[in-house]
Design a protein around this nucleic acid. Structure first.
Lengths: 355, 355
DNA sequence: AGCAAGCCTGAGAGCGCTGTCAGTCCCGAC
DNA sequence: GTCGGGACTGACAGCGCTCTCAGGCTTGCT
């Protein structure tokens, strides 16, 4: 019983505390004149609680400014009411920052309607299996959304067990049937971009591909190849240069391409940032865009409109994709069935001036 | 004692142990042949624990794959071992995404060495005092880093009480002595940028300022004015146009400026994104950059190198700034003294081609 | 050899909350 | 008037962990 000494400390100076900590359920119950159990019931769901008791508790909560202690609750319910967003360390070679921002926005939106909190886990590369995995396995979150991982990420293996509900954003490099993921249709996106180039009469279409250890890099390269094959033009080895999704990487790749295939008249870059890098090199080489060389990028996450000329690109619906992932995760956590296959979002061509 | 009924529930599909949930301290202690207390001591700090016991516990932990239950620990220690990163909803008018990414990277780095977790709180605009404030006040985190808020954010008032250790990144719009913050020297940054323009012989230097309800917007405007006054040239009213830190906003502002001050020969934009927008308008208007009009931006967070010509700009050391903020917060949480004043980082001019 | 002083260790009491279980109370029905 | 039953309610047992308290045991000193 003893509802804790309600001694009066110096007039509670600030927002919370200065008293002996935030109010507890015990105090709420006391203030409402009911038992702890009833107060608890009134707070959660309110089934089997008389309107009178409910009102009393609600009132007490408001008066005291009560907020349930998450730790205590989670200790008994075994739920944490928070999910992890696992992102790779945003190093130099990252897909570009806008991607991260879009991701966060998407998850944030999806979670806004719930009481779930977002715990950001930055998977540091050197860390390997360490911290992140331990945290995830430690039952500190109810589920996880994993973004943009590289080949060999231990996460995939660890999460494949299905112990923890998890959804990947972007096809896991090493696919396993148990893994749930959402993605943009990278192959198709690259295909339609390349197709546009072909339809415009370009004859020597090269590509700046992404890293070989990231699925978007691979898939976009495949789409480019596919389009060429469909058009009856087998791609040439010298027409591919790998970049690392950065501006500088794109520029370097463009230089290699120019050297290997001087007669190129179009380039499909696997990311806008790389396309931007290519633009610079092209200009320095005296090639006009799009007159001499058409350029198409991928992502449309911001950079595409800042370049000159503005980039024709393929829209990567990050936000919708991530919101989707969050929705699936929520359902998984609620005990829903694992969706039969990945959820692939359409990639849409955005025509601008570069190609 | 009873180390939990090892009844066999339907084959627990969990990632960890098919037993009943993750291992507990009790189990570790049992495996190590010591008491729960000793095991606990061995895990935390290990003071007053014999090497023998310590080794036994370490071994047991490794064997069992034990990870402390955060909820239980936090329930008794009253610390949550997590801090909040409060970011505003990244809406259209946001300072630009790279800022967010840099922020996250900075905090991540600073926290990497600790056991602290990062909880991301997205302060939705419509939400007002709601969720975010309640969460912060609810004792769910040990401290908070608050980023880039607008005028009137209720956070400032709520956090000024000092109940929760908090550090702002960017000068709070309504400054209070109790508020701790780190910032880049916006005034000085804008001043040196403008000064460079003056020294280059530019005579009619206009500015695309930021929104009037954000401190960086105001401060950068002030720096521009300061430089002009120092040079003996009072700024003219028509030489200022406010943008909203976006590309489109910058473009619109540039158009207004061009109309109001056709003879302008230099523009200082309060952000690179706005500068990029201005670049487009300038080109469309047939003004060459930098020959006819010099352009300098602010931030150097990525866009500056993708524009043509590349932007001369002022580097905003976001990452260092945020890392600094995290350091201060950590010290605050540890009971350290509140630093006497804000920590202001130097803004550095980065010369490129636009001005 | 005897005693104080450490050094380690184990027992135990909760932290705040939920959920089970056994009532209590008030009905209408018999 | 009594009884069965539904609607609510309160007591209580932990969830897993930390931390205070008392020891038990080894040392160091006299």
């Amino acid at each position: 019983m003893s509802p804790r000494p309600t001694a009066a400390p110096p007039p509670g100076p600030r927002i919370r505390s200065a008293r002996s900590g935030p109010p507890t359920l015990e105090e709420v119950a006391f203030a409402a004149g009911v038992s702890r159990s009833t107060a608890s019931r009134a707070i959660n769901g309110g089934a089997k609680v008389s309107p009178r008791a409910q009102a009393a508790v609600d009132d007490a909560i408001a008066r005291l400014g009560y907020a349930p202690n998450r730790a205590a609750r989670s200790l008994v319910t075994r739920r944490t009411d928070s999910i992890a967003l696992v992102v790779p360390e945003p190093d130099e070679r990252i897909l570009a920052d806008p991607f991260l921002a879009g991701t966060i926005r998407g998850v944030g939106n999806a979670l806004a309607a719930t009481e779930l909190q977002l715990v950001l886990l930055i998977a540091r590369p050197g860390d390997g299996q360490g911290r992140t995995l331990r945290y995830l396995a430690g039952g500190h979150v109810d589920g996880a959304i994993v973004v943009s991982h590289h080949r060999g990420d231990a996460l995939e293996a660890a999460l494949a067990g299905g112990g923890l509900p998890a959804v990947f954003v972007g096809r896991p490099f090493r696919y396993r049937a148990e893994l749930v993921y959402v993605d943009v249709d990278n192959v198709e996106g690259a295909r339609i971009a390349t197709r546009r180039l072909i339809d415009a009469g370009r004859r020597r279409i090269v590509t700046i591909a992404g890293p070989k250890d990231m699925s978007p890099g691979l898939d976009r390269l495949a789409g480019w190849q596919l389009a060429l094959v469909e058009a009856g033009a087998g791609p040439r080895r010298s027409a591919v240069a790998h970049g690392d999704f950065t501006l500088a990487g794109g520029a370097a790749a463009m230089e290699r391409l120019l050297a290997a295939t001087p007669d190129l008249d179009a380039v499909f870059a696997a990311s806008d940032l790389m396309a931007a890098g290519a633009l610079g090199v092209l200009e320095a080489a005296g090639r006009r865009v799009p007159e001499d060389v058409a350029v198409i990028g991928f992502d449309d996450l911001g950079v595409a409109t800042t370049t000159r000329p503005p980039l024709t690109t393929v829209r990567n619906p990050v936000e919708a994709m991530v919101r989707d992932a969050a929705g699936i995760l929520l359902s998984l956590i609620a005990g829903g069935e694992r969706p039969p296959g990945p959820r692939i979002h359409d990639a849409e061509l955005v025509g601008r001036e570069s190609g």
